[in-house]
Design a binder for these strands. Structure first.
Length: 268
DNA sequence: ATGGTGGTTCTACCA
């Protein structure tokens, strides 16, 4: 008997409206059950809800004019939606949405970039990461499967960057930033890609500039972090780089996580 | 190469 699986994708689309044909085409071929979107660059009222509905997906959206914006698409019912990362009521940036789908708590994360490091953006990034750590610690208390997926704007290790020396002082790769990411792992979360693929140069982002894509000058900055209960369900995690080669591509490409369906306890 | 590209919005800002 084949075990039922849940296929969850994360994709920073760099404007959901500009990218709609690419996203719909990929949904049709890859057929994920759940999709975590980042960088919608639009408000909820301008989100292409009808088009996703026609493709078979429900949507929960936390949008913002021009920048940021995150969403959760799912073929299943989406419940218990929480928009915004707890810990700072003054934070107006739409970078976090969390909900329950098919028995799994999922979050779509658009972690701040943090550059330039001399600006107020860098301490905002570090503080946001501390809030994420605190919230993940709270979620762990439930001892249930959860998946934190998205654009973390963090290069975890040198092998995740085409030019580690050149990126040493960037907000995506500074030791201080990576220590904050390491703190998430130290809670007991699992970087799903690295369970399934130990090779260097497994990239999820290639800049539009300077021929980064044709030269494979990429970064691995889009990640799935799993709770122990979700890690126990892990079947596969892989980067699908094909969408990056398409016309009008996002600068990020999807990462796809496959979990065995959580066991539903019932009387026999 | 103090460049390069692309999205939002309309003049820079963000990545």
């Amino acid at each position: 008997m084949k075990t039922a699986t849940l296929k969850i994708a994360t994709w920073n689309v760099n404007s959901v409206n500009a990218r709609l044909p690419n996203v719909l085409a990929w949904l049709g071929s890859a057929a994920p059950d759940v999709v975590l979107l980042q960088e919608l660059k639009t408000t909820e009222d301008k989100f292409p809800r009808m088009e996703f509905s026609a493709a078979g997906y429900n949507a929960e959206v936390f949008g913002q004019k021009a920048w940021n914006g995150v969403a959760i698409l799912a073929k299943h019912k989406i419940t218990g939606v929480q928009a915004g990362l707890p810990g700072d009521k003054s934070d107006e940036q739409a970078r976090y949405i969390e909900a329950t789908v098919a028995g799994v708590r999922v979050a779509s994360i658009y972690l701040p970039n943090g550059n330039p490091v001399e600006s107020e953006k860098y301490p905002y990034k570090l503080a946001w990461m501390e809030r994420l750590r605190a919230h993940a610690a709270t979620l762990l208390g439930a001892e249930t499967p959860f998946v934190l997926g998205g654009d973390y704007n963090i290069i975890p290790e040198a092998r995740d960057c085409y030019d580690a020396k050149g990126w040493a002082d960037d907000a995506l790769f500074r030791l201080e930033s990576r220590r904050k990411f390491r703190a998430l792992l130290n809670l007991g979360l699992t970087d799903a890609l690295r369970v399934c693929n130990d090779k260097a140069a497994q990239y999820t982002f290639w800049d539009y500039q300077a021929g980064a894509w044709p030269q494979n000058h990429g970064l691995r900055i889009d990640h799935f972090l799993l709770s122990p209960q979700a890690a126990d369900l892990l079947e596969d995690c892989a980067i699908d780089s094909a969408p990056r080669a398409e016309d009008k591509a996002s600068d990020h490409t999807p990462v796809v996580l496959t979990l065995r369906q959580p066991t539903v306890l019932h009387n026999t």
